[in-house]
Amino acid sequence: MALRPPGEPMLAQARETLPSLAGRMAVQPKFDGFRALLFTPLHAGDPVLLQTRRGALVQDRFPDLAAAARSLPSGLVLDGELAVLDPHGQLSFTALQRRATAGRNAPALAAEMPAHFIAFDVLQSDGQELLEEPFARRREVLEEQFAGHRLGPPWTLCPSTTDPATAGEWLHEWTDVPGVEGVVIKSLTGRYRPGVRGWTKIRRRNSTEALIGAVTGSLHRPQILLLGRHATTGHLRLVGKTVPLKPGPARDLAEHLTAAGPDHPWTGLRFTASWNSRTPLEPVLADPVLVAETSADVSQDHGVWRHPLRYERLRLDADAADVPPFGET
C-alpha cells in the first residue's frame, strides 16, 4: 500500500562525540532547517503534499516547492530538510520561519526567498514503499532519482560518506558554515523505523563567553541564565539561554550575582521560554558584569543561539571587554 500522510519520520538520538565508524555506517551533514516529508501524486489529479515532522501539511506555504514537485516521478516520498537561502547564499533560519508561517503572502515570499529541499532519504519510489529496505539500498534509489531525472534546485541531494576522515571534516569544518550544525550517523543495514530514534546525531559544540544579564528563579537560587553580548552600538543584546543549572554550580554562582540597577538595558523587555515559543519568562535582572563560559552548538541565527547553551563555569578572571561582540561565535 502506498504511503500517505500523516507519516512519522525516523528520528535521531543525540550524543557528544563522533563514534568509531567501523562497520557499515554512513554519515550525513545535519542541516539546520525544518524536517519534512514530500509526497508526489500517485494518481493524476492528486495534489503534492508537504508534511512537517509534527504531521501538518504545509504545501500551501511553499507553493514553489509544490509546483516544482509536479515534475518529479509519481508515487515518490522523500525525507529531507526544508531550507531557505539568504541573499548571500547562506541558509537562513529566520527566512525559513517567515516562509513556514506564510499565509496569503506565501506566493510573494516564495518569489522573494525560494525554498529548497535537501533530500537525505527516500521512503517510496514509483508507489512502492521502501521502509524495510536497508539504508544502503534506499540511498542507491535516491541517487538514481537525482541522476536519472537530472534533478537540480530546488532539489539537493544530501551528501553521504562512509569515510571516517571525511565525516570528521564535515563535523569540524563544515559546521563553520551557517546552517550546518553537525552530522547524522546511520546504519547502512538499518531499515526505516517511523518515530524511532534509530539514528545518531552529533552537534558540534564550542566553548564561548557571554555576560549574565538575567536569571530565572531568583538571584539566590538561579535556574536558567539569560546571556547577552554588547553590539557595536554598545547595547546589550540577548544571545541565548542555558539549560537548567545543576544544584552545585547554581549555589556557587549565586554567591556572585547582584541585583540590577534601574538602568539595566533589559528593563521592560519581554522574554520567551525558547526560540519559537510564546510562553513568557519572568526573569530576574542581574547586574550584567559576570562572564559565563558556556558550551554552545553552532546553530546561530543573526547572532542568537537557537538551542540552549550549557553553563560551564564563571570566569572571574574576565570582564565585559573579554566577551566577543554580538554576532560572533
Rank of each mutant, 00 (worst) to 15 (best):
R4P: 04
P9F: 08
L11C: 05
R15V: 11
T17S: 13
L18A: 04
L18H: 03
S20H: 05
A22Q: 12
G23E: 12
R24V: 05
V27C: 08
Q28L: 08
Q28D: 08
F31K: 00
G33L: 08
A36K: 00
L38I: 06
H43G: 05
H43K: 14
P47E: 15
L50T: 14
L50S: 07
Q59E: 15
D60N: 15
D60E: 15
D60G: 04
R61L: 02
A67V: 09
V77F: 08
G80T: 07
A83V: 10
V84L: 07
L85Q: 10
P87M: 04
S92W: 08
S92G: 05
T94G: 08
A95I: 03
L96A: 02
A102P: 06
L109N: 06
A111I: 00
P114L: 10
A115V: 01
I118S: 04
F120K: 02
D121N: 10
L123E: 05
E129K: 12
L130H: 03
L131W: 14
E133N: 05
F135T: 12
R137P: 00
V141K: 08
Q145K: 03
R150W: 09
L151F: 12
G152E: 13
G152S: 15
W155K: 04
L157S: 06
P159S: 09
P159H: 13
E169G: 04
W174F: 14
T175N: 13
T175I: 09
G179I: 07
E181A: 06
E181I: 12
I185D: 01
S187P: 09
S187A: 15
S187M: 03
G190F: 03
G195R: 04
V196I: 10
R197K: 14
R197M: 07
R197Y: 02
T200E: 10
I202C: 05
I202R: 02
R205N: 06
N206W: 09
T208D: 14
T208A: 15
A214I: 12
V215W: 06
H220A: 11
P222D: 09
I224L: 02
L225N: 06
L227V: 06
T233N: 14
L236F: 05
P244M: 03
P249W: 07
R251C: 10
L253E: 13
A254V: 09
E255W: 13
H256D: 13
H256P: 01
T258V: 04
A260L: 00
G261Y: 02
H264P: 01
W266K: 00
T267N: 10
G268A: 12
S274H: 08
N276S: 15
N276V: 07
P280M: 04
E282W: 02
P288N: 01
A296I: 11
A296Y: 03
D297F: 03
V298N: 09
S299K: 02
Q300A: 07
D301R: 12
V304G: 02
W305F: 13
H307C: 00
P308R: 10
P308G: 05
L309T: 07
Y311K: 03
E312I: 05
R313D: 00
V323D: 03
P324G: 08
P325R: 09
P325T: 09
